[in-house]
Design a protein around this nucleic acid. Sequence first.
RNA 1: GGGCGGAUAGCUCAGGUGGGAGAGCGUCGGCCUUACAAGCCGAAGGUCACAGGUUCAAGUCCUGUUCCGCCUACCA
Length: 883
Amino acid sequence: MELRKAYDPKEVEGKWYQFWIEKGYFHADTESGKEPFSIVIPPPNVTGSLHIGHALNNTLQDILVRWRRMQGYNCLWLPGTDHAGIATQHVVERELAKEGLGREQLGREEFIRRVWQWKEKYGGVIIHQLKRLGASCDWQRERFTMDEGLSEAVREVFVRLYEEGLIYRGDYIINWCPRCGTALSDLEVEHREQEGKLYFLRYPLEGGGEVVVATTRPETMLGDTAVAVNPTDERYRGIVGRRAILPVLGRRIPVIADSYVDPEFGTGALKVTPAHDPYDFEIAKRHGLEIVRVIDQRGIMTEEAGPYRGLDRFECRKKIVEDLQRDGTLLKVEPYRHSVGHCYRCQTVVEPYLSVQWFVRTKPLARPAIQAVKEGRTRIIPRNWEKVYFDWMESIRDWCISRQIWWGHRIPAWHCRDCGKITVSRTTPQRCSHCGSEAIKQDEDVLDTWFSSALWPFSTLGWPNRTRELEVFYPTSVLVTGFDILFFWVARMMMMGLHFMGEVPFRDVYVHALVRDIEGQKMSKTKGNVIDPLEMIEKYGADALRFTLAILAAQGRDIKLSEERIESSRNFCNKLWNAARFCLMNLEDGVKGEIPPSLTLPDKWILKGLKETIREVTRALEEYRFNEAAQTLYQFTWHSFCDWYIELVKPYLYQQQDPQLRRNTQAVLIYVLERILRLLHPFMPFITEEIWQRLPHEGESITVAPWPEEDGLPEEEEASRRMERVMGIITAIRNIRGEMGVPPSRKVNVTLRVEDEALSRELLQDALFIRSLGLVDGLEIAVGGEPPAASCTAISHGVEVFIPMRELVPDPRKEEMRLLKELKKVEEDLQFVQRKLQNPSFLNKAPREVVEKERKKAEDLLLVRQKLQDRLKVLRELLSTGV
RNA sequence: GGGCGGAUAGCUCAGGUGGGAGAGCGUCGGCCUUACAAGCCGAAGGUCACAGGUUCAAGUCCUGUUCCGCCUACCA
């Protein structure tokens, strides 16, 4: 059964994925008794489609899961999606808008019904895309944050936290998105540096004089209820306690002293707008100030704004600046760079807004979460993210969890119309728990989506029920995620996991990089620089995409992805394919992959390489060094196996005299290839399965084949060195050929000169390789004696290589250049080594083996130099007499 | 303001615990050598950002500087 000339991913990917699913390889069995290895997927937004960041995230998870599965672990990779409250609501509202409908028209219940409808229809897109990528998730356990089970967990957590006093409700200034019409948590606000202006306003004082305040938001002056100065500020000592007259509205407001005010900034006098600035709000609370709301939840000026009522906040700013300028209140305007908060969903400028919201008291939850990482019960990898985690956790602020939208987990709290108190309950209550009134109404708000995802590692395993899944798979082995959601998600899972399970949610957190474009820009649709993973899969195959992401995934650095990189991985797939094609073409009936009792030199060399590769790849994966694992495999497969081993053993395969040798060689070829496939399988699942199935193999799928072990592979240091010497000679011959422009069609005669008998006997035995890979016709091996005249020369591993010049394009000058170049290099090296050896402190202080190494190096270099000089001398005599 | 990361070949990047720097792509030269032109063989190309320091020895450890990037923050 011969393979096609080029690998075609389209023909194989779908087929094998379906096969794996049918066989149930991805399904974890709680009763298997094998050691568990579990990962919960960072649930993508249900509205989402697979972008390159998902592709990276899931490729890395799949590599770990497939590798551990082959190692014999009972692997659970639990997939699912996140209901993404605000995002999903947007999407559905946009859909409705097309029908000319608004959500208010439909009413809450009907709207929610439509969201579910939408979810059923389009929500699975990303799940299908993950399958295209090859993700080996346990699809039978797929979850959704709005599932009944997960919703139960959410209610349970809310009620318990409320009962423990860790959830409270109150009036606070929160981040409000006027466009989305909802509160946002601090994390959901993106701060961006922006070119703004600092306006200096003159507020007259009652009884004469004035105080000048500075502000970036002049429109909020309408809501000012005080002017504050620092109590230590000499300049203002006299005016504290007096009253200022608010321009436009004429309101009398007190001048107060508060240490929050920075005397260095602006004029040192701060206008206090309690309803529209979180810190002004704090000041107001301290001083019992009046609170006047001048901007409403749509970003429109309220009745309190007097003449400006009804204006949009930005229009109002423009207008009020004009007016204040006209009447002289505006003293001056300075350009000012400052950071402005934007809604992470819609980029609207966020409004600090005073409203009643629900909060989680985070400090008591954070403490154990910090402790767990400090004690190493959870490791964050790479380590430097631990610091970021600690910094955030130690200065954590209470988490605003209520959202004024409809799509999400409705807050399980009921307000009593009679006594005004709140009943929080797991199930829908019939009456107020305080006064017994039946006039109760459920809170309108829903919970922040991250509230439910914070429970993901245990809610998906069945909590609050005590399930077998929890018992076996919690804590999960590792969480793989991007640093952008370290706070949003990882930190909160840590807090919730520890609080409710009494144990960390994961042993390791592997934090990977962001994928950027080749210029280092974040990919975004608006910039038009996105690389669409599905398009890449379509074009180059899933394996090529996966391998590219893996080989680029170095710790601590962002990935700059370009299509060329994927193309080169595609070439690697093709290389592997053709290596397999070669092996199969040369495979006789009945031969299977094994290590035969007698091994040739190339066999011993490649098996040693394989052993090292297994060790290195396994170690790299254990340390989450995906790029090193991929790189090692690439080098071994392409350069060791294809470029050298296959070429070296061709003479054995093609000869007829010794059938046993031929068959043994085939056995080693298959043996090594099959191990390469297994090592590559976590990275490139499809092509490896396709080839593996065509090779002689044991078992029904490479997915469940055992991970290769070093044990049982021969060491053969000596043979390996001998092989490398031969390879060095071959390279030397090729070098001369290349530099002298000898085409491959032209064979050359070669003389090798060595110093001792034993070496010459070995070379004689290995002559076959030199002939075949060096394209050598006659090969002579001399011990000592006169070197042949008029030759091109090279020295490798103590062996002098001669190719008679008349066989080549005879240009002695060219050869002279070549030798001089070589000599220069050797002399430089020699100088360097000798300088070291002449340094007494080096000889005294450096470790013995390092000194020995340098001595040996110097000896070798001296020898090489001598020989090169001899050659040069002969060549020059030749040149002077003429060839 | 605080913190973190980066600066290595023309480009994109690797280089755990210090012992004279590697890959992919690109470039140049030679090849359709019966697995592969998505390929083979060979070559060129580097003051490892800068300045000090530690050390017998520094791309690697320490200090400072410059230039980028990111995260974070209550100077309105």
